[in-house]
Design a protein around this nucleic acid. Sequence first.
DNA 1: GTCCATGCAAACCTTTTGCACTATA
DNA 2: TATAGTGCAAAAGGTTTGCATGGAC
Lengths: 166, 166
Amino acid sequence: MSATTETDAYIRLFSRYLREQGLPVTHQREVVADVVFSSVEHLSVDDIEREMRAVGERIGKATIYRTLDLLVKSNLVAENDFGEGFKRYEHRLSREPLHEHLICLHCGTVAEFHDSAVHQIEALVTAQHGFRPIRHKLEIYGLCRECQSAGVSLPREGLICPIDSV
Amino acid sequence: MSATTETDAYIRLFSRYLREQGLPVTHQREVVADVVFSSVEHLSVDDIEREMRAVGERIGKATIYRTLDLLVKSNLVAENDFGEGFKRYEHRLSREPLHEHLICLHCGTVAEFHDSAVHQIEALVTAQHGFRPIRHKLEIYGLCRECQSAGVSLPREGLICPIDSV
DNA sequence: GTCCATGCAAACCTTTTGCACTATA
DNA sequence: TATAGTGCAAAAGGTTTGCATGGAC
């Protein structure tokens, strides 16, 4: 952790945010921020805890959750829910600020992409509905290249086209 | 409930699915299906339970969950997670089979839309990544027309553009 | 010295599961 | 009658909270 000057700059940004809010900059908060800013993955709380222990830090889960709340509020970190039953966190620095996700249903790998057409759709649709957009989320679930090569296939179940067979 | 012949047809479709799977068609399953197929809303389990009690049916939560699993497996019902901490269910009959959601962050109202450009994006992006798409989800969060008229505004917090201020 | 954060454990909330009993086919 | 479903309550799993202690400023 904290290998790069980049990561250090991000941690300083978080510290600045905390001071602006009149909140103490604690060791625990710096450690959580360090782990999150040092990774390009979409980390679960367990991932974060594991990484901390690997570097000899032992911080309570409650503190991790509370710090993640602050990181999300600061806009430095984004919270994701890929339907796994828990949340994942990714920092928003040094990556496309607005991006969408490709999620492999077999191995769980998450890839990112950006397509400006998404914003065009958002602008068009929300204008039609008189809706004021704040954020959006486009997730494509399927099989990544590697899982396809490995011969993985997901079973199909249920009625194929129910609406046609009434 | 069960007011329309349409709803009855949907329930029959579910019964057919159950028989095909060699599963019993029970009263409880018919009641849950009736509630879900009779509504155009995105129902939570609590919504479903409340609706049942309103018509004098008292069915255990476990049975509701188990029946919803079957409805989802049959492809007759879709499961949604709008980040509220619980799931919502919508039937897929007599509505656009593939649609996206507009979710109001203030009142929770969910509207639907369809835009074929989403599929074009999906096709393009997945081809680029060698990814085999199975399903996708596009959700736009913001303020609906009514909440805007009512003067609702959501506070902005955090750093505005962190990446520029390192 | 004043606040606020931390850590632990308990609480929370939705969803799942085990088990004795009941209903479907 | 065999097999599977139901209901209840307990368990599970991620996340939040209360409270006594400790640390930041």
